Simulated assay, not measured.
Amino acid sequence: MNWLLVVGGALVGAPLRYLTDRAVQARHDSVFPWGTFTVNVTGSLILGLLTGAATHLQLLLGTGLCGALTTYSTFSYETLRLAETGAHRQAAVNVAATVVAGCGAAFAGAALARM
C-alpha cells in the first residue's frame, strides 16, 4: 500500500516539475537553469517541512511528490552543458547555489516544522 502513496505523489510531482521549470525558465533570458534550480530548492524546503511528519505523508509528499518534483539528473546535465558551452562561471554558480540553497531550504523547512 505504501507504494501507492509514492506513485500518487509522483503523479503530481512530475508534471509539476515540468510545468514549473518551463514557466520559470520562460521568464529568464539566461542560459542559467533557473527552472531546475527553483524546483530543486522548493523540493528541499518541502522535504525539510516533512521531516517530522507521519510516515504516510513522508511517502506521499516526500518520496512521491518531491522525488518527482526535484531532479538531480537534470541539474547535473544542465551544469555539464553550461561547462561544455564555455559558461564555466555559471556552471560553478549553479553547483554552489543549488547545494547551498537546497540545504538551506531543507534546514529552513525543518525549523518551520518544529515551530
Rank of each mutant, 00 (worst) to 15 (best):
N2G: 10
L4M: 14
L5Y: 13
L5D: 03
L5M: 13
V6K: 06
G9R: 00
G9C: 01
A10K: 03
V12L: 15
G13N: 02
A14D: 02
P15L: 04
L16W: 04
R17K: 01
R17Y: 00
Y18S: 14
Y18N: 11
Y18G: 07
L19E: 12
L19W: 15
T20A: 14
T20E: 07
R22Y: 12
A23L: 09
A26E: 11
A26G: 11
D29E: 15
D29Q: 15
S30T: 12
F32H: 12
W34Q: 10
W34D: 11
T36S: 07
F37V: 08
F37L: 15
N40M: 05
G43Y: 04
G43Q: 09
S44D: 08
S44W: 03
S44H: 03
L45E: 03
L45I: 07
I46V: 15
I46G: 03
I46M: 13
L49R: 03
L50A: 00
T51E: 11
T51I: 10
H56S: 15
L59Q: 13
L61W: 13
G64T: 05
L65A: 01
L65H: 02
C66G: 08
C66E: 01
A68R: 04
T70C: 11
Y72N: 07
Y72R: 02
S73G: 03
T74K: 07
Y77G: 08
Y77A: 14
Y77S: 10
E78I: 08
T79G: 11
T79K: 02
L80S: 14
R81Y: 06
R81D: 13
L82W: 01
A83E: 09
G86L: 04
A87P: 07
A87L: 01
A87T: 07
A87Y: 12
H88N: 08
R89D: 02
A91I: 04
V93H: 03
V93T: 06
V93K: 01
V93D: 00
V95T: 12
A96R: 03
A96S: 10
A96W: 02
A97H: 05
A97L: 14
T98N: 09
V100F: 10
A101D: 10
G102F: 01
G102M: 02
G104A: 07
G104R: 02
A106N: 04
A106W: 01
F107A: 08
A108R: 07
A111G: 09
A113R: 09
A113F: 10
M115T: 15
M115P: 05
